[in-house]
Measured scan of single mutants.
Amino acid sequence: MAAGGDHGSPDSYRSPLASRYASPEMCFVFSDRYKFRTWRQLWLWLAEAEQTLGLPITDEQIQEMKSNLENIDFKMAAEEEKRLRHDVMAHVHTFGHCCPKAAGIIHLGATSCYVGDNTDLIILRNALDLLLPKLARVISRLADFAKERASLPTLGFTHFQPAQLTTVGKRCCLWIQDLCMDLQNLKRVRDDLRFRGVKGTTGTQASFLQLFEGDDHKVEQLDKMVTEKAGFKRAFIITGQTYTRKVDIEVLSVLASLGASVHKICTDIRLLANLKEMEEPFEKQQIGSSAMPYKRNPMRSERCCSLARHLMTLVMDPLQTASVQWFERTLDDSANRRICLAEAFLTADTILNTLQNISEGLVVYPKVIERRIRQELPFMATENIIMAMVKAGGSRQDCHEKIRVLSQQAASVVKQEGGDNDLIERIQVDAYFSPIHSQLDHLLDPSSFTGRASQQVQRFLEEEVYPLLKPYESVMKVKAELCL
């Protein structure tokens, strides 16, 4: 049975990233139509530049190519590739079939990587351009969430054990800070992308030097003109047959890092959902379990974690691919890159769409948070109580021993009897502590235990987050809708 299948058929496997999760716009960027249309555009740009620099290419040939950029006979191309065992030459023939007058000058002087690699770089750039505003929107939604809850005390956790208090907004800023680093890295790697350009079979530009009869300047002009037509500021000066596969490492490393950030955020949300302090959106008709109707599973956060793990592992592909590119190139890269580049971007696209949807509907339960604080705060307040007693004339050592005994009794009630923490009640009825009984409410005010959390939130948002989001103001209103 021949390899390949009808990918629109229910009898043929289709990647869930495309069929179930990723956005239509990201799927289109990695589609065959987008790819092969870009090949034709690159052939047109090459012909236009070659004509401008004096090669015998007519206006009629150029116009014929322009008129057929979208006229792609995919069936013919597939048949040609089956016959020739070469995808680029299959599309040269297919393009030439609908451009008979231009057929002889299509791909003039070029090698397969002229269309293959340059198209990949265009796709990487455009895919990054799709991700950047999506990530900015996630940051914006979380920034709104953090600002609104900047002063809401909550129990902090280290080692997932109760620690000092923080605020809900401050905790959210930990998430935002990681995503801001990801946004900066995505922008950097996007701006650092260079075009492969017009380089020939081993990167020496020998074929173009021959076409222009040894004119170095025209060869350099050709490279520059096509690079500018493709919208790049610069091209690699040095290439082998391909652009260095280190570029793929750079791009997928940034995406993998984004995956790590999203995994951490969504894990926190899942843990908070278990504590009943916070939940992701839950639709009115949504079913959490087929057997347990009360369940409210954090399905979206779980999906993000599941896909983020996949995204983090994909960076190993370009690392290994770059390491086995012998001399000017081997074909070890080809099949692998067809999979890992598309999957990385479709996965990143999915987790950003999902995280935006989550961040637009996060639900906080202040009463649950308050109750958990009441359970733990008495123990945390013991040092403040000791200091207040010393100020009232008591002995630190005597007070410490009193607190120690009462704390152990209260802990026994919590752990052995399943009761509430009654340390404060014990202190309130103990005559030894009568000098500070009137101060206990103040000493137990949760806001006095959150330090500068709310001020940190305000400063972080104003100095770091809002300036970073400013270039994306025009796209901030787009909502994230999930079908599944």
Rank of each mutant, 00 (worst) to 15 (best):
L346Q: 00
P133I: 13
G214L: 02
S12T: 13
C305P: 07
T167W: 12
I424G: 09
Q397I: 09
E70S: 13
L155Y: 09
R188I: 02
M278Y: 08
L130P: 14
K402V: 09
E473C: 13
F145I: 13
K284A: 06
D215Y: 12
A78Y: 07
V254W: 15
L131W: 12
A47D: 06
I436A: 05
T158Q: 01
T111V: 03
I176M: 08
I385D: 15
G418H: 14
L252Q: 07
A381W: 06
F74I: 06
R338E: 14
G288K: 02
L69T: 01
A143W: 15
A453V: 02
E50V: 02
G418V: 14
G116I: 03
Q325G: 02
P100C: 08
E360T: 00
F157P: 05
I238L: 07
V475W: 15
A235C: 06
V390G: 09
V363I: 09
A163N: 14
E228M: 02
S447V: 02
I139S: 14
D59G: 10
S438H: 07
I385G: 08
R188D: 01
D445R: 13
D398P: 09
L468G: 13
F449M: 12
E328A: 09
V88Y: 00
F95V: 13
D332E: 08
T239N: 13
L341Y: 02
S140M: 05
E25Y: 13
P162K: 08
N421G: 14
G116H: 03
A143D: 13
N384Q: 12
S306M: 11
T58L: 07
V368G: 12
I238P: 03
R296K: 15
R404W: 04
L152S: 00
L124I: 10
C305I: 03
A381E: 11
P298A: 09
S474Y: 12
C180P: 05
E148D: 11
Y21S: 14
A335L: 11
R85S: 08
A146S: 05
C173P: 02
I105L: 05
P467W: 00
D248I: 09
R171C: 07
S434W: 13
L46E: 08
H86N: 02
E250A: 10
P378G: 13
P100R: 02
G231T: 04
L252H: 09
G54F: 06
L319R: 12
C172V: 03
G361V: 14
Q51D: 15
A235P: 08
D215W: 05
G197N: 15
F208M: 09
I72L: 04
K218M: 06
T111M: 15
D349S: 10
D192I: 05
N68V: 04
S407D: 09
I62Y: 01
E283D: 13
Y472I: 15
E417D: 09
L44V: 09
E81A: 00
L352K: 11
A102T: 12
D445V: 09
V219Y: 14
G96E: 06
Q416I: 15
H86R: 03
I176C: 01
M380E: 10
P435I: 12
F236K: 08
G8K: 14
A2K: 05
L55H: 13
T111G: 06
T330I: 12
F236P: 13
Q241V: 08
V364E: 11
W175T: 04
T244V: 02
I237C: 14
N384G: 10
D215E: 06
E60G: 08
K470T: 04
I105F: 13
G240Q: 02
P281H: 13
P293I: 03
S447R: 08
L444Q: 14
E370M: 09
H263R: 05
Q41W: 05
D349K: 13
R37E: 07
R149L: 01
A273C: 12
Q241K: 05
S447Q: 00
P100K: 01
L142E: 15
G109L: 01
Q164K: 00
P318K: 08
T239A: 05
D317Q: 09
G169L: 03
W175P: 01
L311M: 07
L469A: 12
I72W: 13
N297P: 07
H400A: 10
C172Y: 12
T201S: 03
Y466T: 05
F327G: 09
V262S: 09
L108N: 03
C399G: 09
D73V: 03
Q325A: 08
A102F: 14
I373W: 11
K75H: 05
I369K: 00
I339T: 11
A127W: 00
R245N: 12
K170R: 10
S19M: 09
L355W: 14
T382V: 09
D333Q: 00
L423C: 14
L186E: 11
M76A: 05
G394N: 09
G8D: 12
M181K: 13
E228W: 15
V324E: 06
I373M: 12
N297C: 05
L186F: 07
L355M: 06
R452G: 07
A206T: 14
K246D: 15
H310I: 14
H93A: 08
T350Y: 06
C180W: 02
Q397H: 00
M316R: 09
T244H: 00
R83A: 09
E343T: 14
D441H: 00
T166P: 04
A392D: 14
V219L: 05
E48A: 03
L319F: 15
H310T: 08
K295C: 01
F74R: 05
T267N: 02
A90M: 11
L346D: 14
G361E: 02
E50I: 03
P10R: 11
C304S: 11
D216S: 02
L132V: 08
G394I: 10
M316L: 07
I62P: 01
P435A: 03
L155W: 01
G200T: 15
R234W: 00
D117F: 05
R459G: 10
A410C: 15
R303E: 12
D87V: 01
T158F: 05
L44H: 08
G394S: 05
P378D: 14
M181S: 07
L46I: 02
V92N: 10
P56N: 01
S412E: 07
D73M: 02
S207T: 10
P446C: 01
M278T: 06
P467Q: 00
N71H: 04
W39P: 05
Y21L: 01
P133E: 07
Q61R: 05
E70F: 13
L468V: 00
S334F: 03
R337K: 05
L209A: 02
G156L: 01
P298T: 06
